[in-house]
Amino acid sequence: MAYENEGLIAAEARRARRAQFSIWLMLATPALALLIQVYLPLFHTLQFVARIELPLLVTIYFGLMRRSQIRGLTLGMLMGLTQDCFARDYMLGMNGICKTLVGYFAASIGMQFDVESAVVRLMLCSIFYLFHQFVYWVLQRSLLGQAVTFDILTELFWTVINALLGVVLFALLDRFRKRE
C-alpha cells in the first residue's frame, strides 16, 4: 500500500510537471513540420526528405511532453490526416491511424517515464518510428490489400536518422517550453 501511495505521488508529481507551450508554438511547429514534409520532396534533390517523418517526431514530442493521452492522440490524428491530404497517393486515414496510435502511446509513456534524457528520447524515437512504419505497412497490406514489402534494413537506417534528428529537434523545442 505504501508502494502504491508512493507511485501515485510520483505520478501526480510528473503530471504536475506537465510541460506548457505557447499556443503559437503549438500551431507553428506542426504546420512547419507538415510544410517541410510536403514541400521539400518536390525537389528532385530533396526527395529523401520524404523519409524524414517530421510530423511524427513532432507528435512524439508533444505527446511525451504534454502527458495527456487524449491530446496526444488528437494531435497525432490531425497531423496524420493533414499529411494524407497533401499526399495524393495516400489514402486519408492511413497516416492518421498510425499517428493517432503513436500520439496515444507517446503520451502514455511520458506519463510513466522521465523522458528528459537524450538517450531515452533516442530510443523512444526509434521505437515509435519503427512502430509507425510497421503499422502503416500492416494497414497497407490488410486494409488496402497492397503487396508491399517491409525492408527492414532500409527502415532501420531511416530509423536511426529520424531518431538522431528527433533528439536534436526535441532539444530545440525544449528551449520554447514553459514550466509551471
Binding site: T74, M77, G93, I97, T100, Y104, L143
Partner: peptide
C-alpha cells in the same frame, strides 16, 4: 477516445 478515433478513420478508409 482512441478507439473512436481509430474507428472513425477506418471508416473513412473504408
Amino acid at each position: 477516445v482512441l478507439l473512436v478515433a481509430i474507428c472513425s478513420q477506418m471508416i473513412l478508409l473504408a
